[in-house]
Design a binder for these strands. Structure first.
Lengths: 342, 342
DNA sequence: GGCAAATGTGCAATCGTTTGCACATTTGTT
DNA sequence: AACAAATGTGCAAACGATTGCACATTTGCC
């Protein structure tokens, strides 16, 4: 009658006429084999009939496991993250784990708070999508032995597991695509260097240019402080007014590319006639823009799914080694890139 | 040493030289007043020093409260939902509650499963964004006295709290806007009637047309089975080939409007020259379409925030009455509507 | 100064499960 | 047939916090 009418293991035991511990063993697949099949049948029947649901709080108290994991992201309204979240949920699948979600808005103090709160809830593991390259929070979790997987962004810490996109490959797809269209003078709108994505794409750009035998002019790399449309506009405007010659822009992110669109229009130019542009992410609806954006599709859903699987592995097999995984992105050719205008 | 090195109330008590129950009372704001200020100070100091964090599982077991709520939505990758989720999180704010999230993909069996799972985790309340007008799950939660708030969609059940958009007002904004542009013959692409949003917008369309003195032709209401682009395309194509005369389409949702865009193009017509179109939702990026979509902006974030506040109220003041709240949407005029073409 | 009331703290039971241990009972071995 | 091993189930003690009750001690009052 207590517990909002919920059935306890004791009531199931009474109904069958066995001891509560027997019911517990029947309901736990690992110990079920130790009980007589006949009793197993009676207990499972009774449990179903009464609608028994184990109380996770009690179980968690006893086992020190809550079957709950924490997921911390910058902001769910950024279209990058919903597919990751969804992938995490699906990757958790039937493992019995449930996720609690937190948004940090990229504010360090909110990250710390959110993780403290999650840890007070005894989460069994944590997925962080907020990592900076040098992140004290990552170091702390690692030190405390909390199973941890970084997703989307990674950090420069020893022994951390991560699932990220292969940014160098992505940039190389963009550069080689533009090169195949005759572009040889490329500019790059780089993301924040404190984030692994910004840094990796920036370095990838320079190294791939060199590998392709193209002149990689550091003056044609424009820095930004955030992956935002405003910053993209600012950076692209600076490139255009800089006087340096280039025929295409490789943006480190779709939003930066959108800003570039605007700067191109502001300068009285046209994409792709005067300047080709590539993005990075393949956000929803960028296929609907004018022109539709050529971009690098990151497998966000798969990133999330793999992160969840990896975390479950980390939780359930204590000494599994940390691994850094990079998933392969894909070039999506649309209307924002065209053969170079002679 | 146990509990992954986490400090228990007992250790704090020992350090100060008081009984664990005293520590508990100090740490609970409601009972703190019963303890001598001097001891309060010593205990709080010791707790901070040791980095004490209460074990939520133990607390939840004893108090039957987990400070956790469930949130069930159809699909996080639908851009409608992230702002709602974010609003819920922010609405929970400092109340101490945390949300666990589930996706149902609009599949009834997955809804049932997810809610069962959440209830096994002893959630204190539930926010449902998945409600159908006649929803057994809603009835069940109500019957069991589980604090429940419906958001976005509502259900036809007595005594259920809900926070939804004022759909009739939204439709009326669209219809009156079109009418002011000279349109008198309007078609409606309606959403699924099993959903409160589909039904309310459909009914709103018919009643507002009548109220404006316009002929509301039932043949100019096209039904759909889902709020999807495909269904919008199908419905709009049918309207266009139906031979009935109309100059504007009021779509029950932005995705349906996108489908209409496609059907209009397929028919060799142009929006807004030949046909004006209005959407509903103001999804991200519909301002970037060609033409930019005139639509009704739903305050999704506020919907979520109010739902969370309402739920906390329901949980914490047991006999608070159920209320159905409708928030006011806003007309966003863009390029998909123009004066009627004579 | 003596008694009643108020105040502050400790005691111990409790929440619902899990699990090491003990004890019957059955099975196998010689 | 006697004893050892294997098997299946019950017992009871945890897990860590909360809270009704009881008991000291202090305070207030006449």
């Amino acid at each position: 009658m207590s517990n909002r009418g919920r059935i306890t293991i004791r009531e199931v035991a009474e109904k069958v006429g066995v001891h509560p511990s027997t019911v517990s063993r029947v309901l736990n697949p690992a110990t079920r084999g130790r009980i007589t099949p006949e009793i197993v049948a009676k207990v499972t029947d009774a449990a179903n009939e009464l609608g028994y649901q184990p109380n996770q709080a009690a179980r968690g108290l006893r086992t020190r496991r809550t079957n709950t994991i924490g997921v911390l992201i910058p902001d769910i309204t950024n279209p990058l993250f919903p597919p990751i979240i969804r992938g995490i949920e699906d990757g958790l699948g039937t493992s019995g784990y449930t996720a609690i979600l937190g948004n940090s808005d990229n504010i360090a103090a909110r990250e710390t708070d959110a993780v403290a709160n999650m840890r007070a809830r005894q989460i069994d593991g944590l997925i962080l999508a907020t990592a900076r390259r040098d992140d004290p929070l990552v170091a702390e979790c690692l030190k405390d032995g909390l199973p941890l997987v970084l997703v989307n962004r990674t950090a420069e810490a020893d022994g951390v597991s991560s699932i990220v996109n292969d940014d160098v490959l992505g940039i190389s797809l963009a550069v080689r695509h533009l090169n195949s269209l005759g572009h040889t003078k490329l500019a790059h709108i780089a993301g924040p260097r404190a984030l692994s994505t910004g840094e990796a794409r920036r370095r990838g750009f320079l190294s791939v240019m060199a590998a392709e035998g193209l002149a990689a002019d550091e003056n044609l790399v424009a820095e930004t402080r955030a992956f935002s449309e405003d910053e993209g506009l600012r950076a692209a405007a600076k490139l255009i007014s800089g006087g340096k010659d280039f025929t295409a822009i490789v943006a480190a992110n779709d939003l930066l590319a959108l800003g570039a669109y605007e700067a191109i229009g502001d300068a009285g130019l046209s994409c792709p006639i005067d300047l080709s542009v590539t993005g990075f992410n393949d956000m929803p609806f960028v296929d609907r823009l004018t022109p539709p954006l050529t971009t690098i599709r990151i497998p966000h859903y798969e990133l999330g799914r793999e992160a969840a699987r990896r975390l479950v592995e980390l939780i359930e097999t204590p000494n599994s080694p940390a691994r850094a995984t990079a998933l392969r992105p894909e070039l999506i050719i649309r209307g924002s890139t065209a053969t170079v205008n002679p």
